[in-house]
Structures are given as structure tokens and as C-alpha cells.
């Protein structure tokens, strides 16, 4: 694994109060992130995959400290982010940046591209006016746009170009960590590849650490070094992307088998999960996946499995993991 852990999460918990009615009485809690331990190593891309409502975006916001944890620790370079005061946090924010999903909503329509890219430099009082202008030109070139576009407005650009601008903005302060939250989900297939390739090549060039959040396991598997699978606020499995075939959590299986494969001749066994994801307000007892798990046993309803290492960097949270087939065994089409 490349480098040391840049980010470490320890037993991170985040709940949101659920308010209802005229007087907004608290009617329970939404358990968004539910005891997550995670490390992101320097220079790697960690793919965080899960369905909507699993808490993956909340986890990203917690690392950026856009949200505060209820309990647990988040360390960046060994410093606990949850304990910093405003001033310390301001300095540290330079090291972490974010790329958002919707390139239409995340750029200010009243600011030119140049102003947008310059803003982080002004906020952090970096360089003279000339330095900043030069930096903006450089950033635009880095993401494959011509420096002349700096005077134009977001509406003049296509979705793919806007996402390039979003990447340039994230790079402006030379961060160590970039959190990309569904960066290509709103883009067409033919545009998606270019943005992902750009992200990968910039990462290698600047040694960036990337947390890549997505609901799309196929995309995650393409760009990540390691993959963490999240379900109802918990990490169910973490594995190196190259060992995708040996992934063996039943939820990972279900995700893999639900993905339609663009090969019509390809016949596969499919596990179709019954029902919907349970409400994060009333978490199931025991293993959170047990109500939908085809292999659930009585123990799964009572006792919560811990995330344990089964082989080096491969960790799984399942009581009966020894009995589970691997993705490759179960789904031969995945390994070509």
C-alpha cells in the first residue's frame, strides 16, 4: 500500500435528529454514520461505494468537517480534526478540497471561471494579483481547458467542461486530500471517461490522496486502489480493487450481481435482494444487513459482526464469512 495513512477514522458516529410536526419535536434519530473505522493512505484512491442513504456523503462531509461528529475521531496527518478551533481548522482546510456531483449547481453562475478559481487563493491570501492570475491560467491548462476561458461564465460550458472546472478549483490550493462525491454521476458515458482519466492522471502527477464516493461499483472499481462497501452507516467490506474477485460479503455480492452487464450472451446467477433498505431511524438489531441477507442465521439478528481482517488489507464484517463464496466463484463473469 502506498504511504502512511493520511486520514484515520476511529469509531465515527453521526446522527441527525428527526423532527416532525408543528413544534418540530424530536422523533428519534437518523443514524447516518454508525461507528466507522477507516484509513485512507497517502497517494491512494479509496473508493467508497453504497446505495443512497447509506451515509457515504455524510462520511465525506465529516472528513471535510462540514459536519461535526457526534463521537469518534477523524485524524488528518495525525491531527484530530474534531478538536480543532476555527483558526486551526481554517489553516487545515487548505489541505482538503471537494469535488461535487452536480457541476451545474456547484459553480456560481454570476462568477466568471477565473473568479471562481481565484477565490480560494484570495480567501487564503496567497500570492500577488499577478501570481494568482498565473495560477488560474495554470489550473485551466492542467484540466485541459484553454486559459482564455477564464473570462467566461459557467452557463457557457458543457457538463464535462464544468466538472473540469470543479476539479481545477479543488486543485487550486494544492491540497493533500480531495474528496470527490459522485463526480461523474450526472455525466453521459462518453464524457465520463475523460473526467475520470483526468482525475487519475492529476492524482498521479501531484501525489494526491482521493476519497472517491459513488453509488456505481463499476466506476469505483475502475479508478480505485481500494474499495470500501458501505451499508446503513457501516463499512461492510474493504478490499484492494485488484482483489475484487475475492470479495465475499453477501451485500457486496448482491451489489455486484445487481449491476447489468453490457454483454447479452452473458448469463449470470442473480441475487435479487428483497425489499428496500431499512430506515436509518430504526436500525435493525444485530447485523444491519440481516433483514435482506439471503444467508441470515439467528446469530445475525442478535449480535453485530465486527469488521475483521481476513487476509492482509481485506476486511469483512460478517459472522459467517468463512462459508461465503467469493465474487469470482459465485459470479465467474466478473473475472475475465
Amino acid at each position: 500500500m502506498p504511504g502512511n495513512p493520511l486520514v484515520q477514522l476511529e469509531q465515527v458516529i453521526k446522527t441527525f435528529p428527526l423532527r416532525k410536526g408543528w413544534f418540530e419535536k424530536e422523533k428519534g434519530n437518523v443514524h447516518a454514520v454508525n461507528g466507522v473505522d477507516l484509513e485512507i493512505f497517502s497517494g491512494e484512491t479509496l473508493g467508497l461505494v453504497g446505495e443512497s442513504g447509506c451515509g457515504k456523503s455524510t462520511l465525506g462531509s465529516l472528513i471535510l468537517r462540514l459536519l461535526k461528529v457526534d463521537s469518534g475521531a477523524i485524524r488528518l496527518d495525525g491531527r484530530d480534526l474534531t478538536e480543532l478551533n476555527r483558526k486551526e481548522l481554517f489553516a487545515l482546510r487548505r489541505q482538503m478540497q471537494v469535488i461535487f456531483q452536480d457541476p451545474y449547481a456547484s459553480l456560481n453562475p454570476r462568477m466568471t471561471i477565473g473568479e471562481t478559481l481565484c477565490e480560494p487563493l484570495i480567501i487564503h491570501r496567497l500570492g500577488s494579483k499577478q501570481d494568482r492570475e498565473a495560477r488560474v491560467d495554470e489550473l485551466l491548462r492542467l484540466v485541459g481547458l484553454s486559459p482564455d476561458v477564464g473570462s467566461r461564465y459557467p452557463h457557457e460550458f458543457s457538463g464535462g467542461q464544468r466538472q473540469r472546472i470543479g476539479i481545477a478549483r479543488a486543485l487550486a490550493l494544492n491540497p493533500k486530500l480531495i474528496i470527490a462525491d459522485e463526480p461523474v454521476s450526472s455525466l453521459d458515458v462518453s464524457i465520463r471517461g475523460e473526467v475520470l482519466n483526468l482525475l487519475m492522471s492529476l492524482q498521479e502527477r501531484f501525489g494526491l490522496t482521493l476519497l472517491f464516493i459513488s453509488h456505481d461499483l463499476t466506476v469505483v472499481q475502475h479508478v480505485s486502489h481500494r474499495i470500501a462497501v458501505m451499508y446503513l452507516g457501516k463499512i461492510m467490506e474493504i478490499f484492494p480493487a485488484r482483489e475484487f474477485g475475492s470479495a465475499r460479503h453477501p451485500y457486496t455480492h448482491a451489489l455486484v450481481s445487481a449491476i447489468p452487464i453490457p454483454k447479452p450472451e452473458h448469463q449470470k446467477k442473480r441475487i435479487i435482494l428483497q425489499g428496500d433498505v431499512p430506515s436509518p431511524v430504526h436500525l435493525p438489531k444485530g447485523c444491519v444487513f440481516h433483514p435482506r441477507c439471503p444467508y441470515a442465521e439467528p446469530r445475525c439478528r442478535e449480535e453485530e459482526p465486527k469488521l475483521v481482517s481476513i487476509n492482509g488489507g481485506h476486511k469483512v464484517a460478517c459472522h459467517y464469512i468463512a462459508k461465503m463464496p467469493t465474487v469470482a466463484e459465485y459470479f465467474p463473469g466478473a473475472s475475465t
Binding site: H222, H225, V256
Partner: peptide
Amino acid sequence: VPVLEVRPDR
């Protein structure tokens, strides 16, 4: 179209 498959590297 990206395809889900086991591959040695990114």
C-alpha cells in the same frame, strides 16, 4: 462503457 471485471490495476 466501463465493465465490472477483475483486473490487475487501475
